[in-house]
Design a protein around this nucleic acid. Structure first.
Length: 480
RNA sequence: GCUCUCAUCGUCUAGGGGUUAGGACACGAGCUUUUCAAGCUUGUAACACGGGUUCGAUUCCCGUUGAGAGUACCA
């Protein structure tokens, strides 16, 4: 068996799309599973869509997600360069070869004529396809006109009859007749290749064994196959992935929410969760397990188990997965992520040890990472106001008495820990002959200002004696 | 319009000629608990439609419908 060589070939639009992340991931998983090679290739043949810093951003997002490539920009193998705009000469040579063997021809049609043509065709309810107007121009005349500087493109000469039949790893046999296949432009008038040409040439030169890409490419695959045939090259395996969808089932788009990997990162999703989530959109290993590490995904992955229908990107489930992965994450790794968030919130003075304690207590009740700070500000600042509803419910007429007594008791505790605090509270409750809840709820309100949060006693232990005493005092003054 | 692709709970999906059609998210109820979460138990909820094939189709075939994608000198 020949070795598995796959590639992720995005165009640098400025960010990594989550659909792209999934495509990259599946390629990566297949490569790692088979001891193969995962290549990153940048398809920047459209000069009008150049975006500054896009390549760096793409690589950064991929790296964040843990998907590292074996060959690509800055990581040379034997098939570089990996940025198409640096391979222009290669494409020109190949187009020339096609021209020489009569598999391609010069086209001098203006975009105006082409537009007009399409308009006519669509008004007549015909397929919009190039009418091969320039296909009949003799090669000598074409060469002369091209040499004289007349603006032109090069198109592929698609056979008039016949069909292209190929087997897609995911969809099975696909059959498309040649008469609906366009004489695709291969070389644009600016001298840059189109996607179709560059893609085929590079996949061949880079010895790609499996072309794994989005379903939107399925209809143009016959063009690619025709090109492989024209060059006399071996055709790789194709696998067209189902699309990622908006809730309304249209192709996942910017307009309906976040699509950039960096958006999810900055919102507070763990890379493990995002990767796990997109991996399961369109693929599953068959069992009932749903939480996977990257290593487990590699072990389980197979193209055979990729589905055919599009999958809606469901944030609710992503949230749940994030929660699961947060619970699985080590306190240390969470700390590394939370620390910068704390600093961005002006909490530089908080010690690493303290922050680690907070993370430990909040771990089970957080969905997004910033909540480690934002949903429990009482760990960092004294409450300035008290939740009204909680106050009405738990700040009874007796509450001040209870808290005063509690303060006295707490004052005597030398080892201020959850167990000793709890013991003191429970015995105090007994003295008053009331349930512990009668003291717990007002105490929680006094200490945190809100009715919910982690275990009160553990929370108080983390807060420490001094802070606890100060807050009780303050609550007594404020709430009467 | 033309071409291609797809079709199991609201969503992600398992399954596959004979099943009480399974799981997860979300939603509802309960348990647990000092609260909120988490956790546990549990409930509601699906094979798009019509024809075949077959003793029997949700499963196989055909059609319809619906949805999506493609239809650029964008990728």
């Amino acid at each position: 068996m020949t070795s598995v060589r796959v590639r992720f070939a995005p165009s640098p639009t400025g960010y990594l799309h989550v659909g792209g992340l999934r495509t990259a991931l599946y390629n990566y998983l297949l490569a790692k599973k088979n001891d193969g090679t995962f290549i990153l290739r940048i398809e920047d043949t459209d000069q009008s869509r150049k975006v500054e810093g896009a390549v760096e951003n793409l690589i950064e997002s991929l790296h964040w997600a843990g998907i590292d490539f074996d060959e690509g920009p800055g990581k040379n193998g034997n098939s570089g360069p990996y940025i198409q705009s640096q391979r222009l000469e290669i494409y020109r040579t190949h187009v020339q070869q096609l021209l020489d063997q009569g598999a391609a021809y010069y086209c001098f049609c203006t975009s105006e004529r082409l537009e007009e043509l399409r308009k006519r065709q669509s008004e007549a309810n015909h397929a919009t396809i190039y009418d091969r107007h320039c296909r009949g121009i003799s090669i000598d005349e074409a060469k002369r006109r091209a040499a004289s500087g007349e603006s032109h493109t090069v198109r592929m000469k698609v056979p008039i009859d016949g069909e292209v039949i190929f087997t897609d790893q995911i969809r099975g046999t696909v059959n498309i007749s040649n008469h609906i296949t366009d004489d695709q432009v291969l070389l644009k008038s600016d001298g840059f290749p189109t996607y179709h040409l560059a893609n085929v040439v590079d996949d061949h030169l880079m010895k790609i064994s499996h072309v794994i890409r989005g379903e939107e490419w399925l209809p143009s695959t016959p063009k690619h196959i025709l090109l492989y045939q024209a060059f006399g090259w071996e055709i790789p395996q194709f696998a067209h992935l189902p699309l990622l969808l908006n809730p309304d089932k249209s192709k996942l788009s910017k307009r309906q929410g976040d699509v950039a990997v960096e958006d999810y990162r900055s919102k507070g999703y763990l890379k493990e969760a995002l990767v796990n989530f997109v991996a399961l959109l369109g693929w599953n290993p068959g069992g009932e397990k749903e939480i996977f590490s990257l290593e487990e995904l590699i072990k389980e992955f197979s193209l055979e188990r990729v589905g055919k229908s599009g999958a809606v990107f469901n944030i609710e489930k992503l949230n749940w997965m994030n929660q699961q992965h947060i619970k699985l994450a080590s306190d240390k790794s969470l700390f590394e992520i939370i620390k910068p968030i704390a600093q961005s919130r002006g909490l530089q003075h908080v010690s690493d040890e303290y922050l680690t304690h907070v993370i430990g207590l909040m771990k089970e009740r957080v969905v997004l990472l910033p909540e480690f700070i934002d949903s429990c500000r009482y760990f960092f600042d004294d409450p300035i106001e008290y939740d009204e509803k909680a106050r009405a419910k738990s700040w009874t007429a007796d509450a001040p008495n209870y808290l005063r007594k509690l303060a006295e008791r707490f004052q005597l505790i030398t080892q201020f820990e959850s167990a000793s605090v709890e013991a003191a509270l429970r015995s105090t409750a007994e003295e008053f002959s009331v349930g512990a809840g009668k003291l717990i709820h007002p105490l929680r309100l006094a200490v945190s200002g809100v009715p919910n949060g982690p275990s009160l006693f553990h929370m108080i232990e983390v807060l420490g004696k001094e802070t606890t005493m100060r807050r009780i005092e303050r609550a007594l003054q404020q709430l009467g």
